[in-house]
Nucleic acid binder design. Structure first.
Lengths: 288, 288
DNA sequence: TCGTTTCTGGAACACATGTTCCATATTGAC
DNA sequence: GTCAATATGGAACATGTGTTCCAGAAACGA
């Protein structure tokens, strides 16, 4: 006569459900674990599919889905499904959608406004892309490499120069010795002649590649100076002479490529290097 | 005996459908127009609701929904609904969601990875913010102001310098005369002495404000040179001496403020100015 | 005005839905 | 090994589904 199982109150939103599932994951029966895994891995399918189609995909019976839902306090499968749908509903719209909404509301936008919006959107896309493109392990290796260097030589021309000039500024603040190459004409090669295997270089170059930067990077690499580079293609001349290299494809607007992602990358690299150095020094001073 | 209506091929994605609906909006019968309006205004409801519930909300008959779908080449309502669902499915998840997923999958992230993610997230927030913060009309005024200038003087120190150095590079490519101030010490004041009311200046400075930049901007303004500025506070010394000024609050990570939004702003401003100049020149040459 | 075409509302239908139930299988305790 | 408790698979069911169809209304042209 008593209720078969406690059914206190189901989670009210997707995050709560997710947390509950993860929490009770280990104590779930076999088939319910199977459903739990499928639900968290394919939330969109749960939102849109029918009980039958989901059951097929997850390789369980439809009744198992219902039991799963009831296990977490829902009336039935439909109640649980509502949370998965609400999740999609409430997900903030993409930037492109918001832009479009903007364009609809105001009848005629000034050209400058459209250009502005275009660059904002390009920056967004770029930053979206770089998050996926950069391999964390490669990044860690690059940080270690550069953190060990006596002096970090920063190679960049033209469009890439603003990025390296920021890095030079930040390294200065962070008390990391670096040398910005390419400011005054003529003395670059003299500066680079001083670089040795205990130093390192960070080169930035995007297509069309400044041949000078590539040549300098190659020379340094030939002398045993470790080179890390940021470029936009695997076929970049920088890639072949670099210990580590990163590919960042910036989105563009009106033919002008964004620099926002490269800038974010540069900041992360700079701060990571400084942080790694600080740790190393702390250890030394503690040991001494 | 002939087919009642042409049913060539339905739109393949939501954007195409949206475009088609808007295009044929005026030639639709009354009830179908009603459905069209509801569909574009409440796409989420179409995605999740049932034909009956949607019909109720849109105040039409379920059969009207089917007719609407068939009118646009679909088999029935369900086919059309798929597009509305795909739209939600393909909507890229928010950056926060992806970050969380990332943190879960890899058990222990290297510190460098966390720093990297932090800067990416900060860049995202900054760019979100600037889109809302910049007033399109003010931006247009600033563009006009600077486009009229003989020479644009770019004032920036330290953290802002990379931005102005990019602008100098881009202006050069775009054949807009400009002068970057602050590169070599000493000659700045001599350079600025040449600026007059027919020129203009663009100054960038963030807290803690480089007193030199503010002083230079004030001097120029006093001599009748129009000043436009980018800064991070209404109380910035730059704001009070500028014809137009923009407030951009960059998000920060670990105390290092992002530059991604400022960079996007700078690119938009640069290209807008060049574009406005090009138009003005075209008009002159046509008239002549 | 009439005749034709198009559009609309609503009932009827065939079908797929989520759920329930129960016999069987599996697990765990003693 | 035996027994109880729980988990599972699958069939049966009632309900809600999307769709079709047709009579009548509205719009349109002559």
């Amino acid at each position: 006569m008593s209720e078969t199982s406690e059914r206190p109150q189901p989670p009210q939103d997707f995050d709560a459900l997710r947390a509950t599932i993860l929490e009770r994951r280990s104590e779930l029966p076999k088939r319910l674990t199977q459903v739990a895994a499928y639900a968290l891995d394919h939330p969109d399918d749960i939102a849109f599919g029918t009980a039958a189609s989901i059951a097929l995909s997850a390789d369980v019976q439809p009744s198992t889905l219902v039991r799963f839902a009831q296990h977490f306090g829902f009336d039935g499968f439909s109640g649980l499904q509502l949370l998965f749908r609400a999740r999609l509903r409430e997900r903030t719209s993409t930037y492109e959608e918001r832009l479009r909404a903007l364009e609809q509301n105001s009848t005629a936008l000034a050209e400058s406004t459209m250009i502005f919006n275009g660059f904002i959107a390009a920056a967004h896309r770029s930053i979206d892309a770089i998050g996926a493109a950069v391999d964390p392990e490669g990044f860690e290796r690059a940080v270690s490499l550069l953190a060990q260097a006596d002096t970090i030589y920063l190679l960049a021309k033209r469009r890439s120069y603003p990025i390296s000039s920021y890095m030079a500024y930040a390294f200065g603040k962070l008390k990391v010795r670096c040398q910005l190459v390419g400011t005054a004409a003529g003395i670059d090669d003299d500066l680079l002649a001083m670089a040795g295997p205990r130093d390192a270089a960070f080169a930035i170059s995007f297509a069309p590649y400044a041949s000078e930067s590539a040549a300098q990077a190659r020379t340094l690499a030939g002398r045993g100076v470790p080179v890390v580079s940021l470029t936009d293609s695997a076929f970049s001349p920088l890639a072949e002479c670099s210990r580590e290299w990163f590919e960042v494809v910036e989105a563009d607007h009106a033919g002008f490529r964004s620099l926002s992602a490269s800038m974010a990358f540069a900041m992360a690299l700079t701060v990571s290097i400084a942080e790694k150095r600080r740790r190393a020094q702390d250890e030394v001073s503690q040991a001494g």
